[in-house]
Amino acid sequence: MEALLASLIGLLTACGVYLALRGRTFPVVLGLTLLSYAVNLFLFAMGRLTIGRPPVIGAGLGGGYADPVPQALVLTAIVIGFAMTAFVIMLALKARAEMGNDHVDGEYE
């Protein structure tokens, strides 16, 4: 299972980086979204993988709980990630309005 998640994180990163290196704003935003998935999952994985033991005290399950700390970190990271995506896409719209195209450098090469 660990190998599966590690590969998914790796693949997310690769796809995110590739898209972030594109020349138009929209693919770059998609790339950043994929990268933020990768980062969130990576942070989450710092607490190691646990199945069926959510960190809710007294949920009636013996044998300890999953680590709540990375979860708390990632929860806010997801919301902030949304704010960032929104900000970047608005920048992209603004750039399109002001420059007349959607190239990340504001001009065609």
Binding site: E2, I9, T13, A14, G16, V17, G47, R48, D67
Partner: peptide, 26 residues
């Protein structure tokens, strides 16, 4: 190439972390 290397690196790092025991402040 850049993307592939980055993915490989992050994936390997995730694997290395996931297979190691740890003690946190949980």
């Amino acid at each position: 190439l850049l993307a592939g290397l980055a993915g490989l690196g992050v994936g390997a790092l995730a694997w290395a972390v996931l297979t190691r025991p740890y003690s946190g402040i949980a």
